[in-house]
Design a protein around this nucleic acid. Structure first.
Lengths: 146, 146
DNA sequence: TTATCCTGTATTCATCTTGATTACATGTAT
DNA sequence: ATACATGTAATCAAGATGAATACAGGATAA
């Protein structure tokens, strides 16, 4: 299992919109860089828009960031594209047997640990911004052209 | 998306084996508590055995822990049942376009952040032992019988 | 030996999620 | 009106998951 690439594609989209801020970032343009189809990009753009991360208007080509890159964290993107539901990163098996002491208590016992693990993951994502990703990419570009 | 319940079922199995240490924990017995079929339990038992967490023998009913509960972490179980591959919790979109500065660098740029997030999650799981889960269940049992 | 019970393992199946693809309604501008 | 973009729905193939069934092989008791 893997967390949907909607998340990393979302990060890609936001990064490219910013680096192409002087140009027009249409869904087709973005899809070309991601190597997917414009429809999927528009779907993800819709989620990013709903989350207040980008500005797009029907009929008008191009998207812009709605906030400064330094104020958008990877966690914002992760939540925007809805890849993992609240407290549901880990699956629990349905209906353990209530006649067994383990069966009737296991879920309540381990859920706090699972939530803590998921929270730790999300905290790391919350500490990384789109600005950092952009800086990193620009730096890699400069290094590779030496 | 969700991480396969093989993980939480594995924890359930280990916990029950220990709490039932004076009895015989056959795959059918364990499956009854988990509320699944014995075949799936045997499959997971095979993984736990391979990882050195339990002892089972063909033809002989019942499984026993191969180590003290205090020395088995949730991370051990998580790795044993192979629910998430190393550094692959997050999906990357294949083949971003190499002619775009973002396309050719995005994966290398974000992979360290994603790995760090996954590592943070695993670290939390590594700090919780089966013994703690058992204690918690016993405690819940005692409280409920007041 | 024979019968019985268990583990180990493979196969099949329905269900779900993902991402690709197509289509089309709606909005904007020339 | 035409051209082009976004918004959104529908369909599809592929992959993962867990349920279910079957059976080979090991262990034990009569």
């Amino acid at each position: 299992m893997s967390i949907s690439s909607r998340f990393t594609v979302g990060v890609h989209i936001l990064t490219l919109i910013e680096l192409n801020k002087d140009g027009i970032s249409s869904s087709e343009f973005l899809a070309g860089s991601v190597n997917t189809n414009p429809s999927l990009v528009r779907k993800i753009m819709g989620m990013l828009k709903k989350a207040g991360l980008i500005e797009v208007q029907p009929g008008i080509a191009g998207a812009k960031l709605a906030k400064e890159p330094a104020t958008i964290s990877l966690l914002d993107v992760y939540k925007a594209v809805d890849v993992v539901k609240e407290k549901e990163l880990f699956s629990l098996h349905d209906n353990p047997h209530p006649d067994c002491p383990v069966g009737r208590n296991i879920q309540d016992s381990i859920t706090p640990f699972l939530s803590a693990a998921q929270f730790a993951l999300e905290k790391v994502l919350g500490n990384v911004t789109i600005e950092e990703v952009i800086k990193d990419i620009v730096e890699k570009e400069n290094n590779s052209s030496l």
